[in-house]
Design a protein around this nucleic acid. Structure first.
Lengths: 243, 243
DNA sequence: TTTCGCATGTTGTCTGACATCCTACATGTA
DNA sequence: TACATGTAGGATGTCAGACAACATGCGAAA
C-alpha cells in the first residue's frame, strides 16, 4: 500500500521550500526576495507556479508583495503554532519540549445527549464513544479532555488506551481530521475537574470547545478541553481584512 | 486628497466578487464552480488572475480544489468574523447588532514601564498615552480596556474622547493598524475591574493582550482587554497544516 | 458480466509577452 | 546650490495559448 509516496504539487513544494529558507535564517525578516523571474529560474519552476506559492505565503502573513518594488519577508513572520494551527494535544505538548502523558479516566459507549446528536449529526439510536482523560506534560496535569466520537466510525467496539486520539482515529477508523471550529471560554472553578488537575480554587480554567471535521467535511469528533490557565495561554495572529 | 479611489488589483476584485457570490447564496456549499476556463471568461479576466483569486479562497478555507475534478465551495465556508479577523471593539459590538458605548476612566501621558518600552520599542525618555475605558454594548458593561500608544505618534497632546481608538489613530496620527499578535488568558477575579464591569466574584474574565502593528510593521498600540466571560467567547477556525 | 482502454473535461504547469507601478539617476532651471 | 522634471530600468500584475497530469464515465473486448 501507498503512504507518503504521493507526489505533492509543485507550488506546495516551492512554498514549503521558501518557508524553510526563512525558518533556517537564509532569508531574514525585512529582506527582499529575488525578483520573480530570477527566483523562478533558481527554483526550477515557472513564474506562474512561483507566484501561486508566494500568494499563499502572503495570505499566511509571512511575506508582503509590493507592486513595482518587490517581495519582502515580513518583520513578524508568524509560523503561528498559534491556535489557528490545529494540532493534537500530544503534538502541542511535544512541540513545547515536554513529555506528554495520559491518564484515561473513562472510555465507554453511551447514548448521546441532544446537543451531541446535533453537533455530530447523528441518526436516532446511534451511540458514541465517550472518553475522559487527564493529559500531563512532564507528569504534571495540564488539561482535562472530554472527547465524543460516533460509534459507527469503528468496525468493532475499540477503545483508546493512551496517546493521540488523532492517530487513533486515523488508524482505527481511517478518518483524517482536517479542520475544527473552536470556541474559547473560561470557567472559574469546577469541583471535579479542578481537583483532577490538582489546581486551587483561585485558578480559573480555559475552556476549548471544538468540533472537528474530516476531509469530507463530516463532523467526527466533539471535544471539550479544560486547560490550567496558569500553565497555558492561546495566541493568535489577527489580521485586518480590508486591503 | 485621495481616498478610496485607489484601484484595487484585479485578483482581489475577483476574489471579493466570488466571496460575495457565496455569501449571497448564488453559490451554495458543496456546489462546483464553473471550470477555470469558463469562469475566467465569464469574469472577464485571464485564467492566471482567476487562479490567484481561487488560491486565496482556498487558503481561507472557503473553497477546495481537486486536481482533475473541479473546484468546490466548502461545506463550512467560514467567513470567520472569528478572532483571527482583527476588528476594533466598536466594530465587534456593532456587528453583533448592539449599540457600542464608551466610558473613559483615564486618559493621560505617562512614563512607560519596562515592559511597555520593550513591547512598543520605545527610546529612553519617550512617553506614552495611557487610556483606560469601559466599553458597553446596549449600555451594559462588556469589556474593560487598557490601551497604550507612543506619544510621538501625535503632533500635540491630543486625547481620546470616545469611540474607536482605531479611527482615532488613523485620523490623529495617520497610522493604520494592519495586524496584531494576541494572547488569550483568563483571570479569576479582579478587585477593581470586576467591579467596573459590574460582575460577581464567580465570573472569571477573559483577558486579551494584544500588540498591534502598523502597515510598516512597527508596533503602535499595546492593549489589554478584560471581557466578561458570561457575555463573550472567542471562536476560531483551526486548520491542520500537512496537505 | 466483468475488465480494460480511451475520450473528455478538469486543475496543474510552462512560456513569452506586455501593462502598470515605483525607484533612482540624470538633466534642466531658478 | 536647491528644486522640479524627465527618463530608463526593474519589480509585480495581467494576459494568451499550449501542454501535462489527473479523474471520471462510457464503450468495446474478453
Amino acid at each position: 500500500m501507498s503512504l507518503e509516496n504521493v507526489q505533492k504539487s509543485r507550488y506546495i513544494m516551492v512554498m514549503e521550500r521558501i518557508k524553510k529558507e526563512i525558518k533556517e535564517g537564509h532569508l531574514v525578516p525585512g529582506e527582499r526576495l529575488p525578483s520573480e523571474n530570477v527566483y523562478a529560474k533558481q527554483l526550477g519552476v515557472s513564474r506562474a507556479t512561483l507566484r501561486e506559492a508566494l500568494r499563499i505565503l502572503e495570505e499566511e502573513n509571512i511575506i508582503s508583495r509590493k507592486h513595482g518594488i518587490g517581495t519582502f519577508v515580513n518583520q513578524v513572520p508568524v509560523f503561528s503554532s498559534g491556535i489557528e494551527e490545529l494540532n493534537s494535544i500530544t503534538e502541542m505538548i511535544h512541540s513545547a519540549g515536554k513529555r506528554p502523558g495520559t491518564e484515561v479516566l473513562l472510555s465507554k459507549y453511551v447514548t448521546p445527549t441532544e446537543e451531541d446528536k446535533e453537533k455530530l449529526q447523528l441518526q436516532d439510536g446511534e451511540r458514541i464513544l465517550l472518553v475522559k482523560r487527564v493529559r500531563t506534560a512532564d507528569d504534571r496535569p495540564l488539561v482535562y479532555c472530554i472527547d465524543k466520537v460516533p460509534a459507527r466510525l469503528f468496525s468493532e467496539e475499540s477503545h483508546l488506551l493512551g496517546g493521540s486520539l488523532f492517530n487513533f482515529l486515523e488508524q482505527e477508523a481511517e478518518v483524517h481530521i482536517d479542520y475544527a471550529t473552536a470556541d474559547i471560554t473560561t470557567v472559574g472553578y469546577h469541583e471535579d475537574i479542578s481537583a483532577r488537575l490538582k489546581c486551587s480554587k483561585k485558578i480559573p480554567l480555559l475552556v476549548l470547545k471544538q468540533l472537528h471535521y474530516s476531509t469530507l467535511d463530516k463532523p467526527v469528533l466533539y471535544s471539550i478541553n479544560f486547560f490550567r490557565s496558569d500553565q497555558f495561554s492561546f495566541n493568535v495572529l489577527r489580521k485586518r481584512t480590508q486591503r
